[in-house]
């Protein structure tokens, strides 16, 4: 990424296409912005016409999109491998579950608490471990994810193995968000907000710091970037996405149990990020939809579908190590 001697200075960075080649670039012209609006409108109108089953599956795909966007900030932007992302998802879901059922809180009041809990979890796990080499970090996050799941399975307050049920679905200005179509729109809105925040983050000062740290940590540090701090920022923002996804997941299904937050879930989220192409937002969205719709479409294969899926992932890593729709930046 070094600038050649005599090349234009940093001011050209502003006019250069985003290094992510992501949605920012996609929405550069009015025509493209119009296209994005058409896609969103189409998503709003078309899905309910496809029938209730499709709405449920698409809602799930949107949930995965939100979580994959959050994990993408950690893995794609900052280059940290997180194998325990389901832990943050769990923190969000259980915060809502416990506060609404045990303490009788209003759902909307629990969201700030869920976010705060995820931030704390992010600092607790990230703070001491982000100095570690990348592969150690992967294992530590995996261990952390398991600790959260085992804790949820054994604590009284989390309802042990059976989890929490009877979570009340929220009201918003007289609208009871209860049906599957209602939640489809809620998740669509959340996904659009998530995309917007991700795009803005990638182009922010912090986003450029992540890019730098990901490419050359030592050089970044020499340029005055506090690498532990920017990594921690990525970790915390990713955790917030996870917690919000988890919070709405809890009210959508009204019941949560430890099985929803297993290591397999974490790998599915990671696959969503990697499959499409990490760091690039359209790629991440594509990945989330493949992860959710793939096994649905392969349903005919019965018990072989996850094997086919796993082999597909392996082949993608071997032949397209940067994903199906990779980021424009090299590596």
């Amino acid at each position: 990424m070094a600038l050649e001697p005599g090349s234009p200075g940093p001011q050209s960075v502003v006019s250069r296409p985003s290094a992510w080649g992501g949605l920012g670039l996609l929405l550069d012209t009015p025509a493209k912005r119009a296209a994005a609006i058409v896609v969103i409108l189409a998503a709003m109108v078309a899905a309910p016409l496809l029938g209730p089953y499709a709405v449920v599956i698409l809602t799930n795909a949107l949930l995965y999109t939100i979580l994959a966007l959050g994990l993408n900030i950690v893995v794609g932007y900052a280059g940290l491998l997180d194998l325990g992302y389901a832990a943050f998802f769990a923190v969000g879901a259980y915060s809502v579950g416990i506060l609404t059922t045990v303490f009788g809180w209003n759902f909307w009041a629990t969201i700030p608490v869920a976010v705060l809990a995820a931030v704390c979890a992010g600092i607790i796990i990230g703070g001491p471990t982000l100095r570690l080499r990348s592969d150690y970090l992967a294992i530590v996050t995996l261990g952390f994810g398991e600790i959260v799941r085992i804790a949820a399975r054994n604590l009284q307050i989390t309802g042990a193995a059976s989890g929490i049920s009877g979570i009340e679905q929220p009201w918003l200005f007289g609208w009871h968000i209860a049906g599957s179509t209602d939640f489809y729109y809620v998740f669509l809105l959340l996904a659009v907000i998530g995309i917007f925040v991700s795009v803005r983050l990638a182009r922010s000062r912090l986003g450029r710091a992540w890019l730098y740290v990901r490419h050359d940590e030592d050089a970044a540090e020499a340029m005055g970037i506090d690498r532990v701090r920017v990594k921690l920022a990525a970790y915390i923002i990713g955790a917030i996405y996870g917690a919000i996804g988890g919070a709405f997941f809890a009210v959508n299904f009204t019941a949560i149990s430890p099985q929803s937050f297993s290591f397999q879930q974490s790998t599915l989220f990671l696959m969503a990020v990697i499959l499409g192409g990490m760091g690039k937002i359209p790629g991440v969205i594509l990945g989330a939809f493949i992860v959710v719709l793939g096994p649905e479409l392969l349903r005919d294969l019965g018990s072989f579908r996850y094997l086919v899926f796993a082999v597909g992932l392996l082949l993608i890593m071997l032949f397209r190590p940067s994903g199906i729709w990779p980021s424009g930046a090299k590596r």
Binding site: M317, L318, P321
Partner: peptide, 30 residues
Amino acid sequence: AYAPMLKAPRLSILITALAVSLVLQNGVLS
């Protein structure tokens, strides 16, 4: 799986290893 990846970025090879793990698990599962 690993020999072609030894020169690839660290993240890619870790994920390849994860993919191998999934293939083995799901293979035996099937």
